[in-house]
Write a protein that binds this DNA or RNA. Structure first.
Lengths: 341, 341
DNA sequence: TGTGTTCTCGTAAACGTTTACGGAAAAACG
DNA sequence: CGTTTTTCCGTAAACGTTTACGAGAACACA
């Protein structure tokens, strides 16, 4: 069924070496011969067997994306990743690279799955998402000398790998600025309790902005909850019942914001009227919620494309003439003002 | 760095053939020898090179999932697929199979991408999503004799491949039943205008249920729109402005429902009060919308797992003792009653 | 014409596995 | 003890590529 390079060689009555060189655009092959080879390749519908190529070249031409769903996401996952993956994959495809998606169970199999990818050499590089502040996956990959890039920063591994992150610190800053400009002084912050790095970055920005405005940081207005609707639902009343009730809340996660708004509704508190609400990462949920939630929006598809470029630039096999480069970028979010603040 | 089967053989001073047989659990190897091989494998941190194995066995041990985002999904994709992929991937991983995700651009590159996967033998089988009523991908794969399964049915290809689908017909039926039981007679249906098969199935159910209740089908109450929020926003006023205004709407897509509700709001029509709204595929959007939308919910993770099983059962290499089997299943949706109807 | 250069191609090894085949040694059997 | 069977292992080929090497032919140059 599938025609190999041997079939082409036999068909043209030349050697397989010449066929291969002709197909790969090498210089030492006669123009006429090349023409005939390419024609025969089309005619016999030839395309190179990837396994053979991988074996010989020691490269699989595929990139693994490691995605670990949060334990709470039973039913629907984060809409975040599809457009990111679309962009990532689109750029990789331009280099004839495939995308392999490895999803851990919500538990801790991820590390194990990662080892398997690396040790059986199923991918040439890895892209990590959901980076933790201390991330053992990064430690492992660094130690193993396996190429990787991350969506999100981490304190692990130093500046030795490409990373692309959203500027959560700046978003926290701008959210507070906006609220202060509108007269708020008591601003609550709600973020996930996991070790996810963006929670720290967000809180840094929040704190710095408050200090800049001469507002004391009240620990009673900062709460951590599980990173889903339930978490937001559970933790929001806690800040609302603090002695001096906040007039605004910044949520560091869209799902938590929705749960939080439900809790608010049950307390008779209407976002946009009785309290201001801002969400750090926008999703369709925010746009169609009622009232529509003011939120900070990332550009996910371009981020996926960019991270692919950054990863490739770090790989010797793909780097340009200047050689491999480690690029790290932090992208701003765009504020989408709606009705909730 | 990476140890091969040759390293093991050298280390133990035996032949590579014996090492391979020992690792693969073949019978013709001494128990003591096997023990030593396994020990050395652990010691030298050996794991088989997948490229070598693929080449020899003619199987890549990876399954490709083809996902084609709808053109309208600029910013966020369907939350639908992440949990489905989680389940699919989890089951595949149990068989040591990897998942490759191939996303077409919103345009028509999908067919081309598919050819590439098949012809370069990068995957052993393919899973198709977003099945069209007439689906040229199915035609192509059938003709090429390449194993595949689909999420969603199609009229193409006959009953020659495994497929798992949601029972949209039944959902359309039940939605109408529910609305009629609540006194509605003028029920509108809004579905995507693409050739996506589920739109036809839904409409069949809707029509049959109306007839069963002795209600004439009014073409003015059926509208097709682009499969996103904008489509729903544009098309909903059309049915509302029909001579005899409907008292209920069934949306065949969550994004269209949200756009539709926005249009309703602008017309001063409140879902749950002035009109009943039911959505066929539930998402978090439905749950947190205000009013919360009554919707039919699939169980996506189990569906992913099940489709993996069905695909594997159709592959000679994985089929059980009875040999390869083609399984086709249609799963019911669960009604989640909320506030909008 | 002799020598050096360029162009073009064939040969064969290599990547890391799996597996059919055969043979030596050990065990079983009479 | 001779013969047959079983156990165990080594050899080598094969999967489909890419590529280092070398060789023959054509060409250029003196």
């Amino acid at each position: 069924m599938a025609s190999s390079i041997h079939d082409l060689a036999r068909h043209l009555n030349i050697s397989i070496g010449t066929v291969s060189r002709a197909l790969n655009g090498r210089a030492d092959v006669n123009a006429e011969t090349r023409r005939r080879v390419l024609e025969a390749a089309r005619e016999l519908n030839y395309s190179p067997n990837q396994s053979g190529r991988s074996l010989r070249q020691g490269a699989t031409r595929s990139i693994a994306f490691m995605l670990q769903p949060h334990p709470g996401d039973q039913q629907y996952g984060e809409p975040f990743f599809i457009p990111f993956l679309t962009g990532l994959q689109a750029r990789l495809a331009e280099y004839d690279l495939d995308l392999m998606v490895v999803m851990g169970e919500p538990g801790q199999y991820q590390q194990e799955r990662l080892r398997r990818v690396v040790e059986t050499r199923r991918a040439d590089a890895v892209v990590l998402a959901n980076t933790r502040r201390e991330d053992d996956r990064i430690d492992y990959l660094s130690k193993a000398g396996f190429p990787f890039a991350t969506l999100g920063r981490s304190q692990s591994g130093g500046d030795t790998y490409p990373s692309l992150d959203i500027d959560f610190e700046r978003a926290g800053n701008e959210a507070v600025d906006r609220l202060v400009a509108r007269g708020h002084r008591r601003i609550a912050a709600i973020r996930p309790s996991l070790d996810l790095n963006f929670g720290y970055l967000f809180l840094d920005g929040y704190r710095k902005a408050l200090k800049r405005h001469g507002i004391e940081v009240d620990p009673g207005l900062i709460a951590d909850g599980f990173i889903n609707e339930t978490g937001g639902y559970q933790v929001t009343p806690r800040v609302m019942l603090s002695k001096d009730r906040p007039t605004a809340i910044v949520f560091n996660n869209d799902a938590m914001a929705l749960g939080g708004c439900k809790a608010l509704a049950e307390m008779g508190i209407r976002p946009g009227h009785d309290i201001a609400v801002i969400v750090i990462v926008d999703t369709p949920l925010c746009r169609y919620f009622s009232p529509a939630l003011t939120a900070f929006r990332p550009s996910l598809d371009p981020m996926g494309r960019r991270l692919a470029e950054m990863l490739l630039a770090s790989l010797p096999a793909f780097a340009g003439p200047e050689g491999p480069r480690i690029i790290r970028e932090v992208w701003p979010l765009e504020l989408v003002a709606r009705e909730s603040d």
